[in-house]
Design a protein around this nucleic acid. Structure first.
Length: 522
RNA sequence: GGCCCCGUCGUCUAGCCUGGUCUAGGACACCGGCCUUUCACGCCGAUAACACGGGUUCAAAUCCCGUCGGGGUCACCA
């Protein structure tokens, strides 16, 4: 078997779609599994203006996820260039060859004339097939049409009988009737070429052996095979993957339908979580650039690439009946196209979240601290460069917060109060715990007890509270929640003794005093 | 509408090719409980699926036919 070569061909759209990543991942895995190469080719035949800017987030996303490419933009390779916009001559040569071989023809019909034929067919409820009335195969026919002032495009001259059987690595044998295939345009009047031609020519020029792509391309495959065969190319193996569907439905996932997905509870939760972090970081949060369908979202919120990859590989593929967590090496070792599912798989942000939880807990403390420090700095809670005492302090905080921190950005929600001079109080929690009958008296009394705790550490604090509660004959909950809200501002967070110890006696007392004052004023 | 693809718990899936061991397994979510100073974690438990109808067979989630349902695609986009 020749060297396996797969490719992913993104259009420079400015963002990396989660479904696209899944397709790229399967290509990458397949290449790695067989010791082959994975390349990136940029499908920009439509001549966008600012390709570099639109491509940057996509390349960045792949790098972040650890999906590396052996050839393509930024890394080059023996088949450069990897941009379709720079390979026009190849396509034009192919078009000329097709023309010369009688596999394509010049067509002088106007778009309106084609549309009219299509509508007529529809009205009669018969399948549309171009009449080829404006087809010109000889110079004299061409001259006649041109004399009318017509312009020509190049169309494929598709077979009108027989059928094609495709051996798809995922779907098995799929049959098509040639007569159902249209004479697609492959070259415009201005000489530029269209996707299907470009795609086939490139795949052959890059020596792609396996075309692994989403199933929406399945129905394009006959015409691509026709082009390839007419050009005398050998055929690659095809594998059409099921697409990634919307949460809770079978529709294709699209970044444009965010409003709809937000009606899905889990999706909304994950989106809201991300939004809160992004706001604190001062990041733009417009839905067309920041939402859970786009990979950037996860990087900014502080997800782990391993979690995303592990989640994604299970979207349409499985190792067996129970394995969920896999290292990259294990994925590469075991990936196979035979075990790819045929039915579309819904994107489930909650399950991704579960993987994120798992990988975050597995990440060494040191690394968690380092990454979370970046978030604190970006949010302006810690100066840059960080003062040297922040390291140990943050380590202590992250340790205390433990598995509550599921994304790096969560440090902002769970630990901001350690770094603020003036904390903000959660209104609801403040009212509930500090404005209730007798709360002020208890808190004030406990404040005095705290002032005497020495050393001011978890063990000492625990003893102090237990003694206090025993003396007053109350439940711990009656005082502990008030202390938490008074010192942290929040109803939830790391263990209270940890919070108090880390904060230190002075800050704790000052915060309790301020909270007591606040209760009095209102 | 034509063509193509698909159809196992709410979701991701195992099982299907090579019928019996499937009173259908695992995971996420949900619900209940335990643990607990909150939250989170952890632990325990519960609910939950072979789209439907016909065959074939001693036996069908597994094979065949049909029906229904869902989706994809039908560009001088990629």
């Amino acid at each position: 078997m020749p060297m396996v070569r797969t490719r992913f061909a993104p259009s420079p759209t400015g963002y990396l779609h989660i479904g696209g990543v899944r397709t790229a991942l399967f290509n990458w895995l397949f290449a790695r599994r067989h010791g082959g190469q994975f390349l990136l080719r940029i499908d920009d035949t439509d001549a966008e203006r600012n390709i570099d800017a639109a491509l940057a987030p996509i390349l960045h996303g792949f790098r972040w996820l650890g999906i590396d490419w052996d050839e393509g933009p930024e890394v080059g390779g023996p088949y450069e260039p990897y941009y379709q916009s720079q390979r026009l001559a190849n396509y034009q040569n192919a078009a000329a060859q097709l023309l010369a071989g009688g596999f394509a023809y010049r067509d002088y019909a106007t778009p309106e004339e084609i549309a009219a034929e299509r509508e007529a067919a529809q009205a009669e409820k018969r399948p549309f097939l171009y009449s080829r009335r404006w087809m010109a195969e000889t110079p004299s026919e061409q001259a006649a049409f041109e004399a009318e002032g017509r312009q020509s495009v190049v169309r494929l001259k598709m077979p009108r009988e027989g059928k094609l059987v495709i051996d798809d690595l995922v779907r098995g044998q799929v049959e098509f009737e040639w007569a159902r295939e249209q004479d697609h345009v492959i070259q415009r009047a201005d000489g530029t070429c269209l996707y299907h031609l470009a795609n086939v020519v490139d795949d052959r020029d890059f020596e792609i052996t396996h075309v692994i792509r989403a199933e929406e391309h399945l129905s394009n495959t006959p015409r691509q095979i026709f082009i390839a065969q007419s050009l005398g190319y050998g055929l690659p193996q095809y594998a059409h993957l099921p697409y990634v569907a919307e949460p809770g439905s079978k529709n294709k996932l699209s970044k444009r339908k965010l409003d709809k997905y937000l009606k899905n509870r889990d999706f909304a939760l994950v989106n809201e979580h991300g939004l809160q972090i992004a706001r604190r970081l001062g990041l733009p949060t417009a839905a067309d650039t920041f939402n859970p369908v786009i990979v950037d979202f996860y990087e900014q919120v502080g997800y782990l690439p391993d979690a995303i990859i592990n989640y994604l590989i299970l979207l349409g593929w499985s190792l067996d009946d129970k394995t969920e967590f896999m290292s990259r090496a294990m994925m590469i070792e075991n990936f196979s196209l035979e075990r790819v599912t045929k039915a579309p798989a819904s994107f489930d942000p909650k399950k991704l979240w579960a993987f994120q939880d798992h990988y975050m807990q597995a990440l060494p403390l040191k690394q968690r601290v380092a990454r979370m420090l970046e978030y604190l700095q970006q949010a302006g809670l810690v100066p840059t460069p960080a003062p040297c005492e922040v390291g140990p302090l943050l380590t202590r905080i992250v340790e205390a917060a433990g598995d509550r921190l599921k994304a790096f950005g969560d440090i902002l929600a769970y630990a901001d109060f350690f770094f603020q001079d003036q904390i903000e109080y959660d209104e609801l929690a403040f009212d509930k715990n500090l404005r209730k009958e007798g709360a002020v008296e208890l808190l004030a009394a406990f404040r005095e007890r705290l002032a005497a705790v020495e050393p001011f550490d978890v063990a000492g604090l625990e003893t102090a509270l237990h003694d206090f509660v025993a003396e007053k004959q109350i439940k711990t909950g009656e005082v502990i929640h008030a202390v938490r809200v008074a010192t942290t501002g929040k109803p939830v967070g790391p263990g209270l003794y940890d919070c108090l110890e880390i904060l230190g006696k002075d800050k704790c007392l000052a915060r309790i005093d301020r909270a007591l004052e606040l209760v009095q004023c209102k």
